[in-house]
Design a binder for these strands. Structure first.
Lengths: 226, 226
DNA sequence: AAATAATGTGAAAAAATTGTAAACATTCCG
DNA sequence: CGGAATGTTTACAATTTTTTCACATTATTT
């Protein structure tokens, strides 16, 4: 019924959680590190990810950050220590809950149940398409309609548009866009953003000026008044 | 903006949470026991309830159960022990999160923020706008309105205005302005500031004298008392 | 009131930013 | 493997913005 991904480099930990979760009817997948988790997220739709902070290749926090860019999947973080800074940082980047090792499997399961129960109903709200005049945006289905006509775009265009729309009415610098849409590991040129904005504007045709240029800064999505 | 109810029989606990929460902009109400909390829930719409398990008259779990019958308000439970049984029971009756005493106020605040953010999906539609008479300033969206009319400005004008407004009622020397708005690496003329003040005053038209000249010093933003 | 100093203003010169297209690089697929 | 699609960089023109500077105006001091 529900798919769970358990990402931890310790096999024992994965085993324990898997056992408990499968007993409660979840389908459990495993990943050994953050990178692997990230790859799996791209392919499979998980309902929850249980992730260790300390993992080789890509640590839990970074993996979480990247995952949140792709899909809105709740994350339950496991940590070896109850370090408060870790916790605070985790909550900031969108971790939904936090369990300190050594943990009781029962508690972890209780928290998993709470998170899933809470996350599911909100799906109803998320399915809606945002409508800005003749520009309709369905982020879940990755569809964009211009005057009722569906338009195809490149992946980056979708990502960029969705990010702009999610953060509409907010001034976004090129750096911010690069960091959040491209990823922390992008070391390219500022102007790449401009090129994609150009293409995106081309794709949304008549609504091209919903994407406002903020000279000396970057861009923002804003529906013009009246 | 958000209303929080803190229910605990220990005044000290209530105080601490109240202090932290008010600092973050929440409106905090207090209840000394479960029964009082229940009564208040009937009258006031809270966005979150922080509740102790051990309370006179009506304990936290029972109060939570009763409250959930009336309204769907998220509950963050405080408990003296880290008793696993308590936790499991709490999650079952709809407790959203669980913090064990003694807790760190910062962690509690982080959890409060997470729960509220999750329950009320952020509304990006409107930004906080500072209003000075007919001069409205939305720094997040980089918008400035003069008598309801949106005005376009150059990057430096925005930066300068925002800086002046952020530091309103404070005398700012040209050097200070150059250092903070232009950057430490600007090696130009003092008078550059004057030119930009001139342009800025032009842009905000009727409200031009909200930017006050301080002879021999620099400038400041100050709304004149009629 | 005259002299002095500081600020306001307009316009030209200098600098920076952005839109765009095209070249180049990379990834994705069959 | 090879071609198509996508992504990135680069170059350049058009435009906007910033800075400077000369002079006007205003305020302050003597």
């Amino acid at each position: 019924m529900y798919n769970i991904l358990v990402a931890d480099d310790e096999e024992k930990i994965r085993e324990v959680i898997k056992e408990y979760a499968e007993f409660e009817g979840y389908t459990v997948y495993e990943a050994e590190n953050g990178m692997q988790a990230l790859d799996m997220v791209k392919k499979i739709d998980f309902d929850l990810i249980v992730m260790d902070v300390m993992m080789p290749k890509l640590d839990g926090f970074s993996a979480c950050k990247e995952i949140k860019k792709i899909k809105d999947i709740p994350v339950l973080m496991l940590s070896a220590r109850g370090d408060e800074y870790d916790k605070l940082f985790g909550f900031e980047i969108g971790v939904d809950d936090y369990v300190v090792k050594p943990f009781s499997p029962k508690e972890v399961m209780a928290r998993i149940n709470v998170i899933i129960r809470r996350h599911k109903p909100s799906d109803n709200t998320k399915n809606e398409t945002l409508v800005f005049g003749g520009l309709e945006i369905d982020m879940v289905g990755r569809n964009v309609y211009v005057d009722g006509e569906k338009v195809d775009m490149t992946p980056k265009e979708y990502d960029l548009l969705f990010y702009l729309v999610r953060n509409r009415n907010i001034a976004l610098s090129r750096d911010k866009l690069l960091e959040d849409v491209w990823g922390f590991d992008f070391f390219g040129d500022d102007r790449t953003v401009d090129t994609h904005i150009k293409m995106l504007r081309g794709s949304i045709g008549a609504y091209r000026d919903y994407i406002v240029t903020l000279r000396g800064l970057g861009y923002k999505f804003e529906v013009p008044q009246s």
